[in-house]
């Protein structure tokens, strides 16, 4: 069976690419600390020696639109073009091309459907920064095949938080039972408290530092029960109007498992939002 080599959960900050690649005179003051933290975080994936990456993210109204909006969608394609004109325009993100892993896509689709998740699929998916940001931070060579999984954290009505956790559990079971010799890493990105297009946006910190503190503790300690007790679709509006992206972190907690303490946890308090980075090694810390 396949080996789940690492489970990684992260924020996806589209400004990282520009902050880390700008010439010295244009680098923001926080860039050096940010790069140091990302470099250390990247090592947690490198050590896992993954062969294939399952990438959980959320389309930001790029390909998925309100005339036909899936709640959970799995990409099944040999290749994925990546990043869009408005991400190039606003964040300076590069165009990318990633290989797919159709066999694992098929396994997750078939198995997910059989487990009761009516997964949508796409045979031609252009992915956006929710998936390319962690490629840029964790695997800038962009040389491993991927299986993208998109969740709807963006266009209400949304699935409830528990459903994200349950899908995470299902992804874990499906990888653990995939008849393959490959080493799989699951990487998912979301948000802590975040406001976009509202009165609390672009403040000196994330809009709700207290939520961020609690959320980091839930994730690092694998406390799914507490997270589910405190987080609802309605409550997530309070920390910031884009905080439903936290449900992608909850999905990743589901992959890691109830009570699974992260083997690596770090965070960085930036203007506008808090960055947070977590890695679990379900089959032991690699040598």
């Amino acid at each position: 069976m396949a080996t789940l080599a690492a489970v990684i959960a992260s924020t996806h900050h589209p400004f990282y690419y520009k902050a880390s690649t700008a010439p010295p005179e244009e680098r923001p003051p926080f860039a050096d600390e940010w790069v140091a933290k990302i470099t250390a975080f990247r090592e947690t994936l490198t050590r896992a020696r993954a062969d294939v990456l399952v990438m959980v993210g959320s389309d930001h109204f790029h390909q998925l639109w309100l005339d036909n909006m899936p709640q959970f969608l799995v990409g099944k394609a040999p290749f994925y073009d990546a990043n869009w004109y408005n991400e190039e325009r606003e964040f300076g993100l590069p165009r990318m091309l990633l290989r797919g892993h159709e066999e694992l896509s098929s396994h997750i689709l078939r198995g997910g459907l059989d487990e009761g998740f009516d997964l949508a699929f796409s045979n031609e998916l252009r992915i956006d920064h929710s998936i390319t940001c962690p490629i840029i931070t964790l695997r800038p060579e962009a040389d491993l095949p991927i299986v993208p999984i998109y969740t709807n954290i963006f266009a209400p009505p949304l699935p409830r938080p528990a459903r994200f956790v349950e899908l995470g559990h299902a992804i874990r079971r499906l990888i653990d039972t995939w008849p393959s010799d490959l080493r799989v890493a699951v990487i998912g990105t979301g948000h802590l408290s975040l406001e976009l297009g509202g009165p609390r946006q672009f403040g000196p910190h994330g809009p709700d530092p207290e939520f961020d503190r609690k959320a980091v503790e839930w994730i690092a300690s694998g406390d799914i029960e507490r997270a589910l007790a405190e987080v609802t679709l309605d409550s997530l509006w309070t920390p910031g109007n884009a905080t439903h992206g936290f449900m992608d972190f909850m999905l990743m907690m589901g992959v890691a498992g109830e009570g699974a303490k992260a083997d690596y946890a770090d965070s960085l308090d930036l203007f506008h939002t808090m960055e947070a980075y977590f890695t679990w090694y379900p089959n032991g810390v690699p040598a």
């Binding site: 309100l66 509202g198 009165p199 946006q201 672009f202 509006w237 203007f271």
Partner: peptide, 24 residues
């Protein structure tokens, strides 16, 4: 940098929770 985004936030500062419903 971010001056437009901060002005945008300030011009929305009279809104409090719950914000207008965005469900379609």
């Amino acid at each position: 940098p971010l001056a437009f985004q901060k002005e945008y936030a300030a011009r929305l500062s009279h809104f409090s929770l719950p914000y207008p419903d965005i469900a379609t």
